[in-house]
Design a protein around this nucleic acid. Structure first.
Length: 416
DNA sequence: ATGTAC
């Protein structure tokens, strides 16, 4: 096992139970490592694992996993409970980018749930996740088929009253959201582990729907309700019950966004889908650490249980990597969720604006397209504003957190 | 990251 003094970014001052899993070429800002130190000092903190995409958040770092005993910190989950990523692998392998772009714009203008009672939809997503869609009248048949493929294992059943958070968010299902959230059709470029890849149908040139999104306003409302203080005793269960509802809502949201992408790709008919998985980036789960139960807070980090699939998101334009977890306890069984920001949004707007013409911004470095009508977002989410993905993937492999399965190169990225 | 207010 590596010792903390072997970390490369001046972390010698950290206690031994806090580690950052970085590597050669991984850029790391000082603020982020300072925030790791403040998290390590929280009462009840057992272990802290910084992922290679670690970057500074407002109060606490993003790309971090925190194990605690007897206390749960809603602040460490943050304002977008249940944010995560879904992949749906299709058996399509060719598409015209022009046609796809037109069809995506049309798919985003269409209403999916015209004949559906909004509160029924919200309650079903909260309490059962995608499976809940099967029980709501008016949900399109092809969306039901997609929902039936969801096999995600939930940490805990939801509890609490969904109507406490329902008002105003009934229409959020199927929306991408802002910031770094996106939806994308990407193409499998390199298959490194074909054995693992074929279990979800990943082959060279397979087209894949990739969605990074969260619980929208619901997560923000949950945060406002719980963020004031650390939780102990019975409050923990009450929070985790509502957190589970937000996580299921977010997972359902990703599925509905994937449905939009797949409809634009004409890949909704029975048999067009080869495989699918979903991972959550912001959550709390009970897991064992050194054989003892602990509360594992993941903030901008995905579980990497042994042999479980995960996807490490490229900034839009850079490849994403499907990886297979190693269940490595030293890293609290986690991996990075993406490339991680390198510039703040204000800095990115200024620097990227100076570097590129507008027309260049609607194309990815790899030739993919970007559908986004918000100019500021094009600057803020430009690949230059993010760390390079390759050193991050290398660091994940070198630290034995996860291994590569296949890379996904963007064809059309949607931020609508 | 968010919905809303400035």
């Amino acid at each position: 096992m590596k010792h903390p003094e072997q970390n490369q970014h001046g972390l010698a001052g950290l206690p031994g139970f806090a580690r950052v899993f970085d590597g050669p070429g991984v850029w790391m800002e000082g603020n982020a490592t300072d925030q790791i130190a403040s998290v390590a000092a929280l009462p009840g903190c057992l272990r802290v694992a910084g992922m290679p995409d670690l970057h500074a958040g407002r109060d606490f770092p993003i790309g971090a996993v925190v194990a605690t005993q007897d206390v749960v910190y809603p602040l460490l989950v943050g304002g977008d409970a249940g944010c995560g990523a879904r992949i749906v692998v299709t058996n399509e392998d060719h598409v015209s980018p022009d046609k796809l772009e037109r069809r995506i714009r049309r798919a985003w203008e269409e209403s999916i749930f015209e004949d559906v009672e909004p509160s029924r939809l919200f309650d079903a997503a909260w309490s059962q996740g995608p499976a809940g869609l099967l029980e709501v009248d008016g949900v399109p048949e092809a969306l039901r088929r997609l929902a039936a493929l969801d096999t995600t294992d939930d940490a805990l059943p939801p509890s609490g009253d969904p109507s406490r958070f329902r008002a105003g968010f009934e229409g959020a299902l199927g929306s991408i959201g802002g910031g770094n959230h996106f939806a994308e059709i990407s193409k499998v470029s390199h298959v490194v582990d074909s054995e693992a890849g074929k279990t979800i149908g990943l082959e060279k040139n397979s087209l894949v729907a990739l969605v990074h999104s969260g619980s929208r306003g619901l997560g923000a409302a949950l945060f406002r309700a719980w963020c004031a203080r650390p939780l102990v005793g019975a409050e923990i269960g009450a929070y985790l019950g509502e957190l589970a509802g937000a996580c299921r809502f977010a997972r359902t949201n990703r599925l509905v966004v994937a449905y939009r992408l797949l409809s634009a790709l004409s890949a909704l008919r029975a048999g067009a889908i080869r495989g699918s998985f979903d991972v959550t980036h912001n959550d709390v789960r009970a897991e064992l650490v050194s054989g003892a139960p602990a509360w594992i807070h993941r903030k901008g980090a995905a579980p990497a249980y042994e042999s479980a699939f995960t996807v490490v998101l490229g900034s839009r334009g850079a490849p994403s990597w499907v990886m297979k977890g190693n269940g490595e306890e030293a890293s609290l069984r986690s991996v990075a969720h993406g490339a991680g920001r390198r510039m703040g949004r204000t800095e990115a707007r200024e620097k990227v604006r100076a570097r590129y013409h507008r027309a260049e911004l609607s194309r990815s470095p790899g030739g993919g397209r970007v559908i986004c009508d918000d100019k500021d977002l094009l600057f803020e989410e430009h690949p230059d504003a993010y760390k390079a993905i390759e050193p991050i993937i290398c660091a994940l492999e070198a630290n034995r957190l996860a291994t590569r399965v296949a890379s996904l190169v963007p064809v059309v990225t949607v931020k609508l």
